[in-house]
């Protein structure tokens, strides 16, 4: 059966990326080379790919509570590597350590 595909839009960017159900947002972002979100451990431990979901439904996997507290989870903060879309999403990327987020031309 064809996997459901969702459109992911990122605050401040015009382009959209496609993320399949059960695919981590970070995987889709990395694979499509679309937005250079900071990529760290990809496993919920380092916190570098922190995002906030502004609109849409999603589920999350296990991540370090140090980087996304329970209170922050309620406010839809998450890590892109452990966030899986259940609908189209709009999100905001937080940069860490002043690394610049660059967009593919």
């Amino acid at each position: 059966m064809e996997k459901e595909k969702f459109q992911i839009s990122i605050k401040g960017l015009d382009e959209k990326i496609i993320c399949e159900e059960d695919e981590a947002l970070l995987t889709a972002l990395e694979k499509q080379g679309f937005a250079k979100i900071p990529v760290g451990c990809r496993k919920g431990g380092c916190g570098i790919c922190k995002i906030k979901i502004l609109e849409g439904e999603f589920k999350i996997g296990k991540m370090s509570i140090k980087h996304v507290s329970l209170a922050e989870r309620k406010m839809n903060f998450s890590l892109a590597c452990k966030t899986f879309p259940k609908s189209d999403l709009r999100l905001e990327i937080f940069k860490k350590n002043n690394k610049v987020i660059t967009i593919r031309a």
């Binding site: 900071p38 990529v39 760290g40 451990c41 431990g45 380092c46 570098i48 370090s64 350590n97 690394k99």
Partner: peptide, 9 residues
């Protein structure tokens, strides 16, 4: 790489 100095647990 970017990760060497920034990605730790």
């Amino acid at each position: 790489n970017d990760r060497f100095m920034t990605v730790v647990t």
